[in-house]
Design a binder for these strands. Structure first.
Lengths: 270, 270
DNA sequence: CCCAATATTTGATTAAAATCAATGCCTTAA
DNA sequence: TTAAGGCATTGATTTTAATCAAATATTGGG
C-alpha cells in the first residue's frame, strides 16, 4: 500500500533544492544513556502526530527511520511541483501551505504546526508551496520509508486515515468560509479556530469568555488564507476591537473578550 | 483499521430517515446464469471506483457485501450530522455535496458521479448534505463492512488512499478558485474541469478545440459551487458566448469552441 | 539609541459583484 | 395548443470590498 497515487498524471515543472539543515534524529542533544524510545515518547508532537498510537519498541523503530530538520523563517520546505521525496510531521513552529496563480495571487490552503502531517494531497509531486513562518523543526520520512511503515504498522495507517478525514473536513469548512462568508464572519471564524486549536483552553467548558490567541503569521498571510485583502483584514479586526469582542495586545497577540459572541459571528448567527 | 476517525468529537443534531429504494445487489436484472463476478466486472463505475483493483472472486465477494440503491432527483442520500452508517460509490447520475449556514447560504463542496466515492470527510457523522441532482444509482456498503474490507483487501485500502489524495488536491484547487479567482476565471475553470472529467475526449491531444460539456446541475448549483450568484454565473456565461469561446446548445449543454483559450482564462493567463 | 525598512492601520475613491426587478424561455400538464 | 410555473437571462441600482494613497507603528541593523 502506497500513500502516493501513482496513477495520477504529474504536471511538468522543475524540482527545487534539497538537503540543508538536516541532522540525524538520533544525534539529538540530551542524555546519551537514555533509551531511544524516549526521544519520540517525549516529543512535543507525539500525541497529535502520525505516530501517536505507537509505543515502546515500535515507536523507537519507527522514529529511527526519521530525521529532524530545522528550517529558518521564510525558508521553503518544498515548492509546488517538486518531487515528493519526503513527508513531514511538524515538531515546532508554523508552516504555511499555499498555491499561487501566475500573476502572484496566492491562496493559503492551511497552516500547519505541532503534530500536523505535511504530505496529504500529493500525486508524486507536491501540489503546494510549504514555507516556514518562523523557525520550524520537522520530523521527516522518505516517501518509500513511510509507505513501508504504513504496511508494517496498521495503527500508523489508521492514524493517517484519520488525519486525512480531518483534513477533508477542514478543507470543506474552509470552502464554505471562502465561498459564502462575509469578511467579518471569515475573521471571526479564523480567530475562533485558532483559539480552539492553539489556546489550550477547553472552550466548551462553561464560563470561559476570554482567550489569548497568538497569530504567528502576517496580515498578508491571514488575507491570503481568508480570500481577502490586508486592508479588509485590518479594518475588520479594528471593527471587532471597537465592538469590544476582541482586544489587541499586539498585532500578533489578540485577546478574545467574548468567545461566544465571536462564534455566533463566525457562523452568521449574529 | 477504520476509516472513521473515532477520536473526533461529534456534533449534536438528529439523524434522518433511511432505507427507501433499496434492492439487493444480487437481484439485478439480467441473465441469471451469469456468474456473480460479472455484475461488478461489467459495472460502469468499476474502472474508476474503490473496487477498481479487485478482480475475479475477490471482486465478487466484495461486491456481494454491497447493495444498489436508487434515489430520485431532488432526494437526499443523507444530511449533515446524520450518523454515517453507509458509504457509497456512485454508479450513475449526479450527486451534490453541500454545507449550509443557518440563513440558507450554501456552499457546494463537490459534484459526484460515476465511480466517485462518497464518505470522505466524515467523523462518524456526515459533514455535508448529499442530494441527487437527477436519478442516481449508488452502490452502498455499511461502514463496518467497508472497514472490514479495507483490512482484508489491501488493494481496496490503497485505492481509497489514492482517492483521498485526489480529493485533497481537488479541494485545494477549489480553495484557490474560491478565494482568489474572478467570476470569469471561476466559470472558465468550472467548464474546463467538467470537460476534462466528463467529455471522454483526451484534451491533451493536439488539434482538439471543440468539446461538448453537459451540465446536469442548475445555475443555482453552479453559483453555490463557485461562490457566486446565479446572475453573475449567467452574465459570465453570456460574455463567454459573445466572445465565441463557448456556444450554448441549451442552458445545460455547452459547447466549448476554444478549449485552449478557456484554459488560459481559467488560470488567469488571458 | 536612532534610523531605515517593513508591517499595519486608516482614509478616500473606484470597481466589481450583489441585490433588486423584470422579462424571456422552456417544460409540462391540462 | 395554451397556460402556468420554474429556470435562466438581462437590466438598473446599490452595496461591498478592492484599490489607491497615506499615515502610523513596529522591528532589526548599525
Amino acid at each position: 500500500m502506497s500513500l502516493t497515487a501513482a496513477n495520477i498524471a504529474a504536471k511538468p515543472k522543475p524540482a527545487a533544492t534539497e538537503g540543508n539543515g538536516c541532522q540525524r534524529f538520533n544525534t539529538m542533544p540530551g542524555n546519551g544513556a537514555q533509551p531511544k524510545t524516549n526521544y519520540c515518547a517525549s516529543c512535543a508532537a507525539h500525541d497529535k502526530a502520525l505516530c501517536s498510537r505507537l509505543t515502546g519498541s515500535d515507536l523507537a523503530e519507527f522514529g529511527s527511520m526519521s530525521q529532524h530538520k530545522t528550517i529558518t523563517a521564510g525558508q521553503m520546505l518544498f515548492s509546488e511541483y517538486d518531487d515528493a521525496r519526503y513527508y513531514y510531521t511538524v515538531i515546532s513552529g508554523d508552516v504555511r501551505l499555499s498555491r499561487m496563480l501566475d500573476d502572484g495571487r496566492r491562496q493559503i490552503t492551511g497552516f500547519k504546526s505541532t503534530g500536523d502531517f505535511i504530505g496529504l494531497g500529493t500525486d508524486g509531486h507536491f501540489t503546494a508551496d510549504a514555507e516556514a513562518i518562523n523557525e520550524v523543526v520537522v520530523c521527516q520520512f522518505t516517501v518509500p520509508t513511510l509507505n513501508q511503515s504504513l504496511e508494517e504498522y496498521s495503527v500508523v495507517q489508521g492514524r493517517l486515515m484519520e488525519m486525512m478525514q480531518e483534513e477533508v473536513i477542514n478543507l470543506q469548512n474552509h470552502m464554505l468560509l471562502l465561498g459564502r462568508k462575509t469578511p467579518m464572519e471569515k475573521i471571526a471564524n479564523f480567530l475562533v479556530e485558532r483559539a480552539k486549536k492553539y489556546s489550550g483552553v477547553d472552550l466548551d467548558g462553561d464560563a470561559i469568555t476570554e482567550v489569548d490567541v497568538k497569530l504567528p503569521m502576517s496580515r498578508t498571510d491571514v488575507a491570503d488564507f481568508l480570500g481577502l485583502t490586508i486592508e479588509t483584514v485590518s479594518r475588520t479586526i479594528t471593527k471587532l476591537r471597537k465592538n469590544g469582542v476582541i482586544a489587541l495586545e499586539t498585532a500578533q497577540h489578540i485577546v478574545i473578550k467574548d468567545i461566544e459572541e465571536l462564534e455566533l459571528i463566525a457562523n452568521g448567527e449574529a
